[in-house]
Amino acid sequence: MEVRTIKVFTTVDNINLHTQVVDMSMTYGQQFGPTYLDGADVTKIKPHNSHEGKTFYVLPNDDTLRVEAFEYYHTTDPSFLGRYMSALNHTKKWKYPQVNGLTSIKWADNNCYLATALLTLQQIELKFNPPALQDAYYRARAGEAANFCALILAYCNKTVGELGDVRETMSYLFQHANLDSCKRVLNVVCKTCGQQQTTLKGVEAVMYMGTLSYEQFKKGVQIPCTCGKQATKYLVQQESPFVMMSAPPAQYELKHGTFTCASEYTGNYQCGHYKHITSKETLYCIDGALLTKSSEYKGPITDVFYKENSYTTTIK
């Protein structure tokens, strides 16, 4: 009895394709271990004539594949690729409408935090270190965002349907971005203890939790000093293409032309909904596939993004 075979390709990165001759009487799992086709788990399936010449994702289970996976995804987590594939199996079914010149995501599976993050990423200057993220990001900007969303979920250790947080998501993504040249110098002034300067680099240099107003941050924000008295913390120097200011959701007025974009969060910790506000020729609110415009805006804002380049204080 002759062994019926077909020729397929296996890959971990969709760049390096490895030619395989597979036995049609055995499952993919018996031949390769966990195997995925377009995100779908085909591990328990036997090869079919229609699979001839198709590319299958496999887990990096030998040295060659491990090197290829690390170079593309910059992670050695053995569960990463499987999590990416199972997320992709959902995100490829989502709709990605162009809204006001940006790629958004039609609401499904509690994905409003991903839509808000995706919209924000198209408006701030950011370059990702893992080629996987950078490639998928370019495709997302062009309207094909399924891979990018699935990668975000995998890097953030999230599953489809789980509630997510924009600030946490951005923080994970910033860790995989090139923020080497970003720098922030802060000064804390206390009447009792004097003053202390701190220099922050990388992710810490672009994120701040405690106030939404970048102007206020430049002037000074009140913080408790270690001595128990009130101290003032203010920005001395900022070198970065953008800054992200966050605070627990509270009524906040966004003035046209003073910011790049913002995240609105309605609801409580267990259950809520994100919308995205962007400042173009007027203010726009993007909620999944829905767009509304207004000249002014007041609502429960939790993150505001500002364009920056270089700032030095005039406070002496």
Rank of each mutant, 00 (worst) to 15 (best):
D287M: 13
K218E: 02
Y214F: 09
N111P: 00
S86R: 13
S104R: 02
K298M: 13
N268C: 07
Q175E: 05
L173Q: 02
F305D: 02
A132H: 00
A69D: 09
H90Q: 14
V203A: 15
S181D: 14
M209K: 15
T5W: 12
Y72H: 11
G194R: 01
D303T: 04
P97A: 13
N100Y: 09
A132G: 07
M245W: 05
H273A: 04
E125Y: 08
I152L: 10
L291P: 10
E281P: 08
R139D: 11
L59E: 13
R139Q: 11
K298R: 11
F32H: 05
A289R: 06
Y36C: 02
D23Y: 12
G299K: 03
V203L: 09
K316C: 15
K127G: 07
M85T: 05
Y137N: 02
T198S: 10
K255S: 07
A154M: 03
M244F: 03
T226W: 06
K46F: 09
F56Y: 07
T313R: 15
T232E: 05
K54F: 13
Y284A: 13
A115F: 07
A289F: 05
H273C: 02
V3G: 11
G257C: 03
Q251H: 12
Q238C: 03
Y234F: 09
Q251T: 14
A117Q: 04
D41C: 12
W107E: 03
D41S: 12
T103A: 07
E253Y: 05
Y306N: 02
V206S: 02
V12Y: 07
V58M: 08
Q30I: 11
S263D: 02
Q195M: 15
L133V: 05
K54R: 11
L163I: 02
K255N: 09
T19S: 11
H74C: 06
N16D: 14
T159S: 13
Q20A: 10
E204K: 13
E168Y: 14
C261I: 06
E308D: 05
I286F: 07
N187S: 11
K158H: 04
V188R: 10
P249Y: 01
G272P: 04
G272V: 00
V42F: 13
Y172S: 14
V12W: 04
I45F: 15
K316Q: 15
Y306F: 09
Y311M: 09
R184F: 02
K191G: 14
D180V: 08
G288A: 09
T76N: 10
R66F: 14
Q98H: 09
T192I: 11
F32T: 10
P34E: 12
A142I: 11
A145P: 11
Y28S: 08
M85R: 05
T10N: 06
D23W: 10
Y73T: 02
G202M: 00
Y172A: 09
T116D: 03
G272A: 00
L163M: 13
P248Y: 15
V203G: 06
F259C: 05
E281C: 06
E264N: 03
R141L: 10
K7I: 11
Y138Q: 14
M207L: 00
R167V: 06
D62L: 08
T266Y: 05
Q122M: 04
M244C: 02
P97T: 13
P60M: 06
Y57A: 05
T76M: 15
T198D: 06
G257Q: 06
V185P: 04
A132R: 10
T35W: 06
Q134S: 09
L17P: 15
A136E: 12
T260L: 15
C225L: 02
K233F: 07
V160N: 00
G267R: 13
C182Y: 08
K44M: 13
G53W: 10
C182W: 03
L133S: 03
Y274W: 00
I124Q: 00
T292L: 08
T11F: 09
L126E: 02
R184A: 10
K95D: 15
T260Y: 03
L151P: 03
Q30K: 14
L254D: 04
K92E: 06
T313V: 12
Y155T: 02
P300Q: 11
F56S: 04
S79M: 14
Y208P: 00
C182D: 07
D38I: 08
G39F: 10
K275D: 00
K183S: 08
H256E: 09
G101N: 11
H273E: 00
D23V: 13
P47G: 08
E215Y: 03
N110A: 03
N61S: 11
T314N: 15
Y208A: 11
Y73E: 08
L200A: 07
P241E: 00
G161D: 07
N147T: 13
Q196A: 10
V189H: 10
P60T: 05
K93F: 12
T282L: 10
L114E: 01
L163C: 15
E144R: 08
M244I: 07
S50E: 15
P34K: 13
A250T: 14
T198N: 08
F148I: 07
D13R: 08
T169Y: 01
N187Q: 11
Y208T: 06
C190S: 02
V3Y: 13
A136C: 05
A146T: 02
V99Q: 07
T159K: 15
T226H: 13
L65I: 06
M170I: 09
E308R: 07
G220E: 05
Q195K: 12
A289I: 07
Y155A: 04
Y113K: 06
E2S: 10
L17Q: 13
P130H: 02
E125D: 14
T282Y: 11
D38G: 08
D180R: 08
P47M: 03
G257T: 04
C271Y: 15
T116M: 00
L17K: 08
C271W: 15
Y36P: 07
K307F: 08
Y138L: 14
A154C: 07
T64K: 12
C149T: 12
T11P: 05
Q270S: 15
E125F: 01
F56I: 00
V99D: 00
